[in-house]
Nucleic acid binder design. Structure first.
Length: 232
DNA sequence: AGTTCCACTAGTCAGGAGGA
DNA sequence: TCCTCCTGACTAGTGGAACT
C-alpha cells in the first residue's frame, strides 16, 4: 500500500475514540515511536496477553479491536485506573477523558509531543517555551565543556532536519532579543553549530542548566536556533 | 524461553593545534 | 593568553548471537 500509511495513522476503537499516531520509516519498514505507542497503550489500559486486531479501512485509517486476555473484546472505554494506581507511562490528563470528537486532535498533540529531548525531563513543560509550537526543538543540558552545540540523530530523524553546507552561517536568537551568528559544522559525522561556548559564557550558563533549542527552518533546512534558558 | 556476552553505534568530553 | 576548532578516546545504550 505505497503511501497509504505515511506520516500519520488514525487508530479508531469500538467506542469511537481515535488516536492520531505518527509513523516513521526506516529500512525495515514503518514504525510508531515508543512515546506515541505508549500513549495508546496507556489510554486503553493494555496489558500482556491482550490481543489487538488492526483492520485497514481506508488510507491512514485503522479500526482497532481490543480483545482482553485474548478472550473478550472490549466494546467500551476501559474504566479509569484507581487513584493510587500509577499509569505505565504518565501523561497529561486531558487525553484520558477526551471525547470522540476531541480525542483525535488531543492525541494529535500527543503525537507532536513525541519530540525528542536531549537528556531531560518533562517534554510538555518545555513546549511552553516555544515561540512557535510547530517548530522543531530539542532540550540541551549544559555540560562540562560546551564548544559547539550538537544536534542529535533522533532529533534530526524526528523532524527530517537538513543543514546548510559546512561553514555556512546560522543564527542564534537569544532570550534578550539579540542575535549571534555562528557556523554550521560537521564533527565526527554529526552536525553541530559553533559559538555555543561563547553563549554559555556570556549568559553564565552552568553545568546542569537546561536550554530549550527551538529550530527555525527554511524548508527543512535549519537556519536559526532560538534559545530559551530554562535554568536547572 | 530466558539470560549473558559481544559488537556496533551514537554521544560526550578531554586535549592538542592554531589563530587573534 | 585566551578562545575556537577539531580529532580521537571513552562511555552508555542497543541489538543480535550464543549459551543455558
Amino acid at each position: 500500500m505505497p503511501g497509504a500509511l505515511e506520516h500519520k495513522v488514525v487508530f479508531s476503537v469500538r467506542w469511537e475514540n481515535e488516536w492520531l499516531l505518527w509513523v516513521q520509516r526506516e529500512k525495515n519498514g514503518l514504525f510508531i515511536d515508543e512515546e506515541n505507542w505508549n500513549e495508546f497503550v496507556d489510554d486503553n489500559r493494555l496489558a500482556p496477553n491482550d490481543v489487538l486486531i488492526f483492520t485497514h479501512e481506508e488510507t491512514m485509517y485503522f479500526q482497532v479491536q481490543i480483545i482482553k486476555n485474548g478472550e473478550k473484546e472490549l466494546m467500551e472505554a476501559p474504566p479509569e485506573v484507581e487513584p493510587e494506581t500509577e499509569p505505565l507511562h504518565p501523561k497529561p490528563q486531558e487525553t484520558k477523558t477526551a471525547t470522540a470528537s476531541t480525542s483525535a486532535s488531543a492525541s494529535a498533540n500527543g503525537g507532536m509531543s513525541s519530540r525528542v529531548s536531549q537528556g531531560c525531563g518533562n517534554v510538555k513543560s518545555h513546549e511552553q517555551y516555544l515561540l512557535n509550537p510547530k517548530n522543531a526543538y530539542f532540550v540541551k543540558t549544559v555540560g562540562k565543556k560546551n564548544d559547539v552545540l550538537y544536534v542529535r540523530q533522533p532529533v534530526i530523524k524526528e523532524y527530517g532536519l537538513k543543514f546548510g553546507p559546512v561553514d555556512s552561517a546560522i543564527n542564534y536568537h537569544l532570550p534578550n532579543g539579540t542575535e549571534e551568528t555562528a557556523l554550521n559544522k560537521v564533527y565526527t559525522g554529526y552536525p553541530c553549530f559553533t559559538g555555543w561556548g561563547a553563549i554559555c559564557r556570556t549568559h553564565k550558563l552552568q553545568q546542569g542548566d537546561t536550554v530549550v533549542c527551538e529550530l527555525e527552518r527554511s524548508g527543512d533546512v535549519v537556519t536559526a536556533v532560538r534559545l530559551h534558558f530554562v535554568g536547572k
